[in-house]
Design a protein around this nucleic acid. Sequence first.
DNA 1: CTAATTTCGCTACTCTAGTTGCGTAATTGG
DNA 2: CCAATTACGCAACTAGAGTAGCGAAATTAG
Lengths: 207, 207
Amino acid sequence: MVRGRPRDATVADRVVAVAAQLLREGGYAGFTIDEVAVRAGVAKTTLYRRWPSRDHLVAEAVAALMAEVSLPDTGDVRADLRRATLAVAAGLREPRTRALIAELVAYGARHDDLGAFLRELWARRRQATGELIERGIAGGQLPAGTDPALLIDALTGPLYYRTLITGEPITDEYVAALTDAALAGAGSHRAGTRDASGVAGECREAR
Amino acid sequence: MVRGRPRDATVADRVVAVAAQLLREGGYAGFTIDEVAVRAGVAKTTLYRRWPSRDHLVAEAVAALMAEVSLPDTGDVRADLRRATLAVAAGLREPRTRALIAELVAYGARHDDLGAFLRELWARRRQATGELIERGIAGGQLPAGTDPALLIDALTGPLYYRTLITGEPITDEYVAALTDAALAGAGSHRAGTRDASGVAGECREAR
DNA sequence: CTAATTTCGCTACTCTAGTTGCGTAATTGG
DNA sequence: CCAATTACGCAACTAGAGTAGCGAAATTAG
């Protein structure tokens, strides 16, 4: 057995719950380590014995907050992808969510370990979408040459780009156009077929 | 005339130069207001009379750093877009650039005015690309229905998405595939033509 | 020249992240 | 029971962001 005094097993749960609650209340602002310590009834030093930095604690609390969130699966892969993309867009429109993601991005850049943790978090979210796309390819609803990772990026990347970088609005019309373009572009890449000039134009006419 | 003692006109230049230099030396870490004040030979309070926060000063220094950067223009719009996208990818591969952008993203989320400032900064960079695309449409090198903003998002969004969120590598092959998909998807959206199901598949066969 | 006005430097302060050192509580092994 | 070991709480500390107050310097209006 381990020798010394065992860790208080309730501490982790209490702290993360309090941290998540603080984030819900005031978002990123108003979240202080001291406040977490007081509300959770533990010493600040105890917090730092378990989480190496404030950023780490916030990240874990966010992970707890986004533990749920599911993916539609109606059998119509294209429709499911549209719905999922609209859901992501809706989430990113929330100012508090936007602010939190922006902070997480900075955390990931500041601490290598936190970066890995967050990448893992995002990867889990993309996993399900990837499987959905695989089913779509297998079932003939998406072109055989479709690269799942690339399609996810094409659907999601512009949303985060607008949210975090350009700040341009993400309307449902924009999401529809984005989804159209991404689905139309899927499977277009072939080794040796670097440029698809004209093809899109042809497709447009053919509709 | 204005009544009181005039501002020392050299202060702004000195401070921004020192701030940019500190960013070059140590990136985001190691940048402290006190150090800037000491090196620029001004009082810390004077800094805060001109820049409302550290974040604002960093943002202005970054803006000074990225003042240059030009866009290729060979007449071949598709090739120019490929080149420009590769250049953006190369920039984002730099760890220090990546870290700075991540911090800027958080700044923009924390301060509304800084958000506007940064959006303006990015908008200026996209402006030139938009004009390039317009020329491509006018010259028939891109489908008539191409939405310039959407195409820019499709080309750039995934790069920032990978850089800031997923952390997946951005290889030149990835950029090539991404550019193919984006260019193939351009102009695919039409009012009333919500879904392009099958079209991409057709294109694949026709290739 | 004098008064009003504005900038500047300086000192001292608050607040929060994060650290250090110490005494004490809880547990296991003998 | 006793020693070793580990967790915990507490108090004091450092460092950096940001603020407040004051006196001095520079400038313009009269």
